[in-house]
Nucleic acid binder design. Sequence first.
DNA 1: GTTTTTGTTTAAAG
DNA 2: TCTTTAAACAAAAA
Length: 262
Amino acid sequence: MPELPEVEMARMLVQDRLNGKRVASLQVKDHKMLTNGSERTMREAFIGRSVGDAHRHGKNLLVRIGDDHLFIHLGMSGSLHLVDDRETTPHERLRLGLDEGALVLDDPRRFGRFGLYHRLEDLLTERDLGPDALTMSDKVFVSQMAGRRGSIKPLLLDQSLIAGVGNLYADETLFQEHLHPATKADTIPEANMARLGKRVRKVLEASISVRTEFSRLPEGFLLRDRREGAACPRCSTELAAIRIGGRTTILCPECQSLRTKP
DNA sequence: GTTTTTGTTTAAAG
DNA sequence: TCTTTAAACAAAAA
Ligand SMILES: [Zn+2]
């Protein structure tokens, strides 16, 4: 469950249920997913300390524990669960034991990552992350896109430009802005680019406000039925599937026209 | 058996 | 230096 709104759900879970609890144990179940620090340094930093605030930057989760942070990225199929002491999940990759219960990272595909970071700034530098897509200003968005000549969708997906937008929300955003995903960024007027930045935030906020349950999104949202052959919520034309930046892209051929050739 | 997938990283080529 | 494409990672669902 892994784009910005889904990670925000995970952040809220940790913030609401783990804050103030003491860490009793830590087990790395998959060492290939450990990306910064080691099991030993994580244990030294976290065990016996209490959990502080949970932060999110883009799709990255940082949980303050003692004087350091536990870093978690959910990858393509990761999810966080609070479980009882003896309970496990089918694909447990990291287990953070508390005095009572545990926080488990479950991830069947193992594209997720976790580790130890001292500060948020270290994470941003190390992983080359741009400004957070939910909290950025229009101005920042415009300046991040300035000078780029590639297609707009891959730019939205580039975490070093804007952190947090993934394949699904990129499609939703471009659909709502009537923009073809292959539109070259340098052909988009500045005012329209600012509107696009605003739309990115709106879409992410809308998903968060329905706890990322797509069926509860307002009418007119592509994500309610994002499928090749489904009816465009706006004009009922059959939605098309194309490939852009190596990712499957669903769009309405009528609403999202391309003025110039891609 | 084949294809596809809410992500990221690396290499290669233009 | 920038852009584009492909592959790799790995598992499960269609
Ligand atoms: Zn349409």
